[in-house]
């Protein structure tokens, strides 16, 4: 058991024992190798199952909206989760007073698919250390460099530290390079129109419409999603090209000014479809036009909700943004 895991456990134990929170949302030891699962601890004695390592892939802020606002929640937050929590508080999905955020500077989430591609599926155990992931497979022990196994969204991460946690466990990490995420969008923008369409179609049309991306996303909390609505039905609900295009375009667009680039959608996708290139573009535009980044505090409204009469000076006949 790592030192960090021990710290999280004792903090969660304190919260539950002192009755400060009703539930602690964290991770527990996995049933399937390399896949620690989100867990909801209500009794201190359950905490022996609590675990934390680089393979904890879910964005736990996702579970915030499943509780009434009065529930006092203790939650494990990494940089992206903290930003998602902030964005949810802005949208009045929970009140900050009823949250206790246990912050962890995040060294990046390891993509389990990349691990399995290198080691095969016969995994007996693993250990996540600072620079290497040690995987014990049936016939061999692998020592894999951690940085190469990170999920692409984590390789581009700008804010690995929680911004507004109540307690920070572990040393704060240096901020990431903000040009990486922009460079990706810009390199896609630099492609020709045909290439962009071809890439979008190639990705979107593999979609099986399982909506795992929606379920994994903390910001997708609508009671009824536009694709589930059937009178009138807004889009095709099958896996036809038109249906999958509409899903990918509108799902991403609904995240404008709300997406915190955690990459949970891509990690959840069973078809390995890339989709952060869509939400990252919208995030970049929100920064360029409105100097807004989602989740940096829990007060500022996102641009689509914060329109003012000041827009008037940019508002010309047929004029483009700003």
């Amino acid at each position: 058991m790592s030192e960090l895991e021990q710290k999280i456990r004792s903090e969660a134990e304190r919260l539950l024992k002192e009755g400060l929170v009703d539930v602690v949302i964290a991770f527990r030891k996995e049933d399937a190798p390399l896949r620690p699962q989100p867990a909801f601890f209500t009794h201190p004695e359950d905490l022996e199952n609590l675990t934390y390592n680089g393979l904890c892939a879910n964005n736990l802020a996702n579970y915030l909206t499943r509780y009434p606002r009065e529930t006092r929640i203790g939650m494990l937050v990494r940089g992206c989760e903290n930003r998602s929590v902030n964005a949810l508080i802005v949208e009045k999905q929970h009140s900050r007073e009823n949250l206790y955020l246990i912050g962890i500077p995040c060294t990046g989430i390891i993509d389990w698919r990349k691990v399995i591609a290198l080691t095969g599926e016969d995994i007996l155990g693993y250990e996540d250390t600072d620079s290497t992931l040690i995987v014990r497979a049936r016939h061999q022990t692998f020592r894999l460099p951690r940085q190469e196994l990170l999920h692409p969204s984590c390789q581009r991460c700008v804010h690995p530290n929680p911004l507004s946690a109540d307690i920070l466990l572990g040393e704060a990490l240096p901020e990431g390079d903000p040009t990486l995420i922009r460079a990706r969008v810009e390199s896609f923008e630099a492609l020709s129109r045909e290439e962009r369409t071809a890439f979008f179609r190639q990705e979107a049309e593999r979609c099986i419409r399982c909506y795992a991306c929606r379920e994994a996303c903390p910001m997708c909390y609508c009671e009824e999603c536009f694709v589930d609505h059937n009178t009138p039905r807004w889009t095709e609900s099958g896996t036809t090209p038109a249906g999958t295009h509409a899903w990918h375009i509108i799902r991403a667009f609904h995240q404008t000014g709300r997406c915190t680039s955690c990459g949970a959608c891509e990690r959840a996708c069973p078809m390995d479809i890339q989709m952060t290139y869509l939400t990252d573009k919208l995030g970049k535009d929100m920064w360029d036009y409105y100097q807004f980044a989602a989740g940096m505090d829990d007060k500022t409204q996102p641009p689509f909700a914060a329109f003012t009469m000041d827009d008037k000076k940019h508002f010309q006949a047929g004029g483009k943004l700003s």
């Binding site: 896609f188 375009i249 404008t256 573009k281 919208l282 329109f307 827009d311 508002f315």
Partner: peptide, 23 residues
């Protein structure tokens, strides 16, 4: 202020559509 809300959304939507290849 309906048009102010619309303008922010729809103009961003048009540049988003351009991003994925729709003129």
């Amino acid at each position: 202020e309906g048009n102010l809300a619309a303008r922010r959304q729809l103009q961003e939507f048009s540049s988003f559509m351009d991003y994925i290849g729709y003129d």
